[in-house]
């Protein structure tokens, strides 16, 4: 009995804490900011994303690059000293959760995504002159399978499918007569069924009457590898992939 009682006590406190945080989060979206330590010295009217959006990270871990947003005024000039708050769904955390813009009008935060593999819609909010101004930011967290896919894609596929070059990995994209699509290109890849994707990866371009420049990987990668690659392609698709077929929605 005693055991149970103590357990409940700890649970009680942590629930309370969690409840308080949850209550505080949406609260500050609308009302006056709870971050009393930060005194805004200026206000802007426009929020723009500088960098750090559209990253692909891993569940529960910090994204590689920080998220940077900029506050501007009506004339597009950067506003230093404006307050920016960052919000996300449950499980997302920001360090810091609110910041004042620096000398160049930018506020920077490090983002840790939740434990669930998904696309996360985050927002940055600045009080603005008349009404709060907000900016939507999208980040993606990969789960185990999708990440295995991303590692495989990096090793086997990206040299051709990603036109971006770095000194460590020179892209082969420009050298190909027929151009492959980047795996993020949802407008094309979302139209291909899982069966078609499997078939072109296993047997190469000719399997779908496409160019043989796309090699077959059926004897190189395992069935689980191919599934992981497809899960990855689906996870990073932009616009997002909506699975077709049986959808068990409410009656």
């Amino acid at each position: 009995m005693m055991r149970r009682f103590t357990a409940r006590m700890t649970f009680g406190t942590s629930t309370m804490l969690a409840l308080l945080t949850f209550a505080a989060l949406p609260g500050c979206k609308h009302s006056t900011p709870a971050h009393s330590a930060l005194k805004a010295t200026a206000q802007g009217t426009v929020l723009v994303e500088t960098s750090g959006g559209h990253q692909v990270g891993v569940t529960g871990t910090a994204l590689k690059d920080p998220l940077v947003v900029q506050v501007n005024d009506d004339h597009g000039t950067a506003v230093p000293g404006a307050l920016v708050e960052f919000h996300g769904s449950a499980g997302v955390s920001f360090d810091p959760a609110a910041a004042l813009t620096d000398g160049s009008g930018q506020a920077t935060t490090s983002v840790t995504l939740g434990a669930i593999a998904a696309r996360y819609d985050l927002s940055a909010v600045t009080p603005g002159k008349a009404a709060p101004v907000s900016l939507e930011i999208v980040e993606t967290a990969l789960g185990y399978q999708e990440r295995v896919g991303s590692i495989l894609a990096d090793k086997y596929c990206s040299r051709c499918h990603d036109s971006e070059s770095s000194p460590e990995r020179v892209s082969n994209y420009d050298n190909l007569e027929v151009k492959p699509h980047p795996f993020t290109e949802g407008s094309t890849l979302n139209k291909m069924s899982d069966a078609d994707l499997t078939s072109i990866i296993l047997h190469g371009g000719p399997a779908l009457n496409r160019s043989a420049l796309m090699p077959p990987y059926g004897n190189t990668l395992s069935a689980a590898d191919v599934k992981a690659l497809i899960a990855y392609v689906r996870a990073v698709a932009d616009p997002p992939y909506q699975p077709a077929g049986t959808v068990y929605a409410r009656k």
Binding site: R4, A7, T61, A115
Partner: peptide
């Protein structure tokens, strides 16, 4: 073995450990 959320996820009692954060999975 616990059958309550508090005990299963958050126990700090002797010989027990709370659930592992996903980042170290």
């Amino acid at each position: 073995q616990a059958t309550t959320v508090a005990e299963a996820h958050h126990s700090e009692r002797t010989g027990e450990e709370p659930i592992l954060p996903t980042r170290y999975i």
